[in-house]
Design a protein around this nucleic acid. Structure first.
Lengths: 162, 162
DNA sequence: TATTGTTATACTCTATAACTATA
DNA sequence: TATAGTTATAGAGTATAACAATA
């Protein structure tokens, strides 16, 4: 968990004491992998900053959104949809279940599998967190107008082949 | 370290046994935070896949690039430039030093600080890794033509306020 | 007093391997 | 045999706190 001081650290306008301010050279500053990593880092940190009062991570939130529109997913399906290992999904679902936000039930159609659904408490939690998550996203995307957001969406969608 | 099986897992066209194929709903598939996270995830995994023969992570590689064009950075400057905690930079530089790729020397102008520079071995390693890293980036960006890459660069730069 | 860096430590995330149970 | 999920375990990464050296 990244605490306040780090957010401050990250967002302060750094001005080291000594004269020569180090700069990220253009070759790196215009490097797409660098830009992508930094954008993701910023998104993660702003999400954490805005949701500090709720016991949730960005990925937990994403999983709840998946379950909201797709109730009764198998854990193996969650793994596919999120690009994660089965054991990582077990870990993730364990955490949400401990908070009482999701439930596991054996799938009657295939008793090897467990279907995961949100509980009433989970839905309540999701609703209470949604505004903070939206505020985080607003802050991340603030520099872009609607047209630019659409362009970014289109480019990333193409990049992912989705 | 993500091993081959996971790359395969991630990139195989998943077709679960049971009839109803779960889908990421449009509301999430078009969600910019989701797209950004997935693009970053893809970038990370392709970098790992292409550089498996070299003992290096994407962040190590980024730091070597920083040092290449900006030799003699302080660790605190590295922390600022990469958005990391000081202790994390100590950990990172420790790793590169153990591999003999960077050296720390006290800064004569401010003996509190250590300047970090690449060694000859570090430069050799960087050159041997560069083609694999370039191949990874090529694969990540393959779906985009030059114009689209420029657009993505411009949008992410704006997003970051750089 | 403030800053640079280190160490000790702990927690989160992620994966491997071995297992159980189902199909 | 193959798949779904769990458990035990280990490693990487990241942070906090306390500290030493220097400014």
């Amino acid at each position: 968990m990244i605490l306040d001081c780090c957010i401050v650290h990250y967002y302060r306008l750094a001005t080291p004491e000594h004269a020569v301010q180090p700069r990220i050279p253009t070759s790196i500053r215009r490097h797409l992998p660098y830009l992508l990593a930094r954008a993701y880092q910023r998104q993660q940190r702003l999400f954490e900053a805005h949701t500090r009062d709720f016991d949730i991570t960005g990925r937990d939130y994403g999983l709840l959104l998946m379950l909201e529109s797709n109730p009764g997913l198998w854990q193996s399906e969650i793994a596919d949809l999120m690009g994660l290992d089965r054991t990582t999904v077990t870990y993730l679902v364990d955490g949400l279940q401990k908070r009482g936000w999701v439930a596991r039930e054996p799938d009657p159609a295939d008793r090897r599998a467990h279907v995961v659904t949100m509980t009433a408490d989970g839905r309540t939690a999701l609703e209470s967190i949604r505004p903070a998550a939206a505020a985080a996203i607003d802050e991340v995307l603030a520099p872009l107008d609607e047209t630019e957001r659409d362009q970014l969406r289109a480019l990333l969608t193409r990049l992912l082949g989705h």
